[in-house]
Every structure is written in structure tokens, then in C-alpha cells.
Design a protein around this nucleic acid. Structure first.
Length: 443
DNA sequence: GTAGGGTTAG
């Protein structure tokens, strides 16, 4: 067993095993992994580590933690669970073989990987292993724990970890606090978030943009616009700078509370008075959504025009939001016009688009609303998309994330290969002008 | 070699 193997720790922190006769070979082992990772990629490096484990060769915690981080990416890239679990297993193997060589940083990397995989069981087994090996958790460990429990919606465990790890809490920095506030907000416990935030503010610690923004989001979710705005206005007084996310969060709070005029004012402030911040697609879409929800379709269309003037790439979501606004305002002509424009711009309507259109036709009294939708799709030579999946993968139907279903898959559906084209002429789309389809038809 | 906030709709 690896545990019985004696280890030699060299000055540079790398390890050699007694069985390896040439110190040179032993010392180059970690570099071999780095080299493989650099030249052939991290998967090959895991292969090499597996091979080294089989041969009883050792490596160091720095290399394996770098390998793990590289495997799970920076959070932007898509996480591949198979590769991540393989990384976890091989790091665990490393810990089994070289338990004297592990530290808190390596465990944190492991815990963070479990967090990204949303695997609470694995996380908890790593925590107890950490305890058994007497590796002391740091405030970073505390942050990862509350973050993981927070994203799982397990408020009791968030609070338990925060309460129990008193020493780490005392050493908490702004990132730890950020994890905690976000966890409370995600679990819907604004009260605790406020308590932690106030405690932090009273001691004068850690005032920053992220912490304020998290609290604004929390108030927004609780439809407490008054307090959200209060914090928003407090930021400049406290010399805490805004960023795009802060603005988008307060805009979302205004819209959630139905206060479109505050949203408009803030968007205006963002566009005119901030030098380094430009409203982005999300800022405009949020305000646009607010108008649509309030039945202020014309104002929404004005925002839409402004977005185009600013050369923002309006996506399927923007069009769906606007068409939803047409349903609310009983304007089926504008809805169809938007559909035409969406298609002519190369955007791919989804099942959600189809269901919005169906409601649009129902609203104006068409009993054969679904047939009308089918006609509209076939008019633009489009297959009508399959209804959105239910369950956890349903978000793939949201257009933005995940690959679109292949046309073959749609065509392969029984009965879907040739969608019925029934009475397309019943809908007179004479006013569909591909150059300007955004305004409701005058007549 | 480790940790925090925003992605719009049915």
C-alpha cells in the first residue's frame, strides 16, 4: 500500500519515494505531469498520473491541484462531469497514497469541484476525510461550504456551517462574506443576509460592489424595492462603485416590482451619466420586459428600437419577451410582425416562441390557434419546434443555452416530417415587410 | 495550486 511507503520531501516541496533509485528521475516526476498537461492536455496528464500510481511513483499536491483546476475549467467553460469525477477520483487516490503531502488548499480544490458538480455527498465525504487527516479548514473552506449548501437550497446546512466554523468566520474576508450572503439570498433568507451584511458594515469591513449587488438582488427577489433602492443610493455615498451587474440587478428589482418608471430613470442614468459603464443587452432587455409585463407595448418597442440603434444583438429571448408583450396587449399583428423579423434575422424560434404565438392567436379569438401557428411557421419554411421538454433539462428549450435540437431530430418525429400546411392564407400576412416589421400595422 | 454577484420567457 502507498501509505506504508516512506516519502522524502525535497527542498522544492516535491516528493520522491525510496524505491526510486535515481533522484533525478524522482525529481522530474512532477515536471513530467506538467509537461504532459502542457503538451497533450490535462486528460493525458491524468492518464500519466494513473500510470505513476500503478508504478508507485509519487508526485506533489501543487501538480495535482493544478490538474484538477484545469479539468474543471474557470467556471465559464462547460463542465464535463465525467472528466471532473475522474479528476476527483485520481486526486483522492493521490491523498490515499501520500496523505502526509496534502494540505487545505488541495482539499479546497476538491471541495470546489464537488460544489461545481453539485455533489453534496461527495463534498461531505471529503470534509470528513479532511477532518480525519487533521487538515485545518480555512475561511476559503467555509466559503465553499456555504456556497455549495446555498446553491442546493439547504438553508439549515448553510447556517450550521456558518455557526460551527467560528474561527474561520472570524478570519472571513470579503469573498467568504460574498459566498455567505449569496447563499442566504439563494435560500430565500433575506433576514440572515441582512444580519450578516449589517454586522459586516458595522465593523467597517468589506464594503464592495459585489456585496452590495448581492443584497440588492436579495431585496429584489423579496419585492422590497424600497430597500433595494436605499442600498443602491447608499453605494456612492460609501464610495462603493457601481458596475454593469449592479445596474442590471437594480433594474431587475424595479421590473419585478412593476416600477417601470424607476427602471427607465435608472437605465437613463446608466446610459448618460456613467462614463465607464454602458447598458448592455441584459440592461435593455430587463427594462423591455418590464414594459411588456406592464402592458406598455409601445414603450417596449421604443426600447427595442434603441437597442438596434446601439447595435445590440437582439436574441430570441428579446423577441419572445416582446411577443409575450403582444399577448398581454392583444396585438397579434405586432406579434406576427416580430416573428417575421426574428426569422428574417436568422434567429431560430423555439417551442416557447410557438406557444407564445398560440396564446396570441387564442387571445384574439382564434379557435384553431395551433393551426395558425403551424401556418406561420410553414410560411417561413420552418418546422414547428417540438414542445419544450419538461424536467431539469427543460432549460435547453430556452434557446440560449445548450445545443438546438437537430433538424433531423425534429423531422424524424412521427408525423412531424411533413407538417400540415392548412390554410396558410387564412392569416393574411400582407403587412409582413421584412425591412420593418417592428411596428404594429396601422390598420 | 483553492472561494463570491447579473443571462432576460412559457
Amino acid at each position: 500500500m502507498g501509505k506504508s511507503r516512506a516519502h522524502l520531501k525535497s527542498e522544492d516541496g516535491r516528493c520522491a519515494v525510496r524505491e526510486v533509485p535515481t533522484p533525478l528521475r524522482a525529481r522530474t516526476a512532477p515536471n513530467v505531469l506538467e509537461e504532459v498537461m502542457r503538451r497533450k492536455g490535462v486528460d493525458e496528464a491524468w492518464d500519466a498520473l494513473e500510470q505513476m500510481h500503478a508504478e508507485g511513483k509519487t508526485t506533489d499536491k501543487y501538480t495535482v491541484s493544478r490538474m484538477l483546476m484545469k479539468t474543471v475549467g474557470d467556471g465559464q467553460a462547460h463542465l464535463d462531469p465525467t472528466r471532473a469525477y475522474r479528476g476527483i477520483s485520481l486526486v483522492e487516490k493521490f491523498i490515499e497514497l501520500q496523505p502526509e503531502d496534502v494540505d487545505e488548499v488541495l482539499f479546497n480544490a476538491l471541495l470546489d469541484t464537488c460544489c461545481r458538480l453539485k455533489d453534496l455527498k461527495r463534498l461531505e465525504s471529503c470534509v470528513s476525510w479532511m477532518r480525519r487527516l487533521k487538515v485545518k479548514p480555512s475561511p476559503i473552506t467555509l466559503g465553499i461550504l456555504v456556497k455549495t449548501y446555498g446553491q442546493a437550497g439547504d438553508l439549515d446546512k448553510v447556517l450550521a456551517a456558518w455557526d460551527e466554523m467560528e474561527e474561520q468566520r472570524g478570519l472571513a474576508n470579503s469573498v467568504t462574506y460574498g459566498c455567505m450572503l449569496d447563499a442566504c439570498v439563494k435560500c430565500g433568507n433575506l433576514q440572515k443576509a441582512v444580519e450578516v451584511f449589517k454586522g459586516m458594515r458595522d465593523t467597517g469591513k468589506h464594503k464592495n460592489t459585489i456585496l452590495y449587488t448581492t443584497m440588492i438582488k436579495g431585496y429584489g427577489l423579496h419585492k422590497d424595492l424600497e430597500n433595494a433602492l436605499k442600498l443602491f443610493r447608499e453605494m456612492p455615498e460609501q464610495q462603493v462603485p457601481y458596475n454593469t451587474i449592479t445596474y442590471n440587478s437594480i433594474l431587475e428589482a424595479c421590473v419585478k416590482c412593476g416600477d417601470t418608471s424607476s427602471a427607465e430613470e435608472i437605465l437613463d442614468q446608466m446610459a448618460r451619466t456613467e462614463y465607464e459603464i454602458e447598458p448592455d443587452l441584459i440592461s435593455y432587455s430587463t427594462v423591455l420586459k418590464g414594459y411588456c409585463q406592464n402592458g406598455e407595448l409601445l414603450k417596449a418597442l421604443c426600447v427595442f428600437e434603441e437597442m438596434k440603434e446601439r447595435k445590440l444583438r437582439c436574441d430570441e429571448l428579446v423577441y419572445n419577451t416582446l411577443m409575450e408583450g403582444c399577448v398581454k396587449s392583444d396585438d397579434w399583428k405586432a406579434g406576427c410582425g416580430l416573428f417575421g423579423e426574428m426569422v428574417s434575422r436568422g434567429l431560430r424560434p423555439s417551442a416557447i416562441t410557438a406557444s407564445i404565438l398560440s396564446r396570441l392567436f387564442q387571445r384574439v379569438g382564434h379557435e384553431d390557434a395551433d393551426d395558425k401557428v403551424a401556418s406561420l411557421f410553414s410560411l417561413f419554411q420552418l418546422e414547428r419546434p417540438q414542445p419544450a421538454e419538461r424536467g431539469p433539462r427543460a432549460r435547453n428549450a430556452r434557446g440560449g443555452k445548450g445545443p438546438p435540437p437537430s433538424p433531423g431530430a425534429v423531422a424524424g418525429m412521427p408525423g412531424a416530417a411533413r407538417p400540415t400546411v392548412r390554410g396558410p392564407r387564412k392569416i393574411r400576412l400582407v403587412w409582413v415587410n421584412h425591412n420593418d416589421l417592428t411596428r404594429p400595422h396601422p390598420k
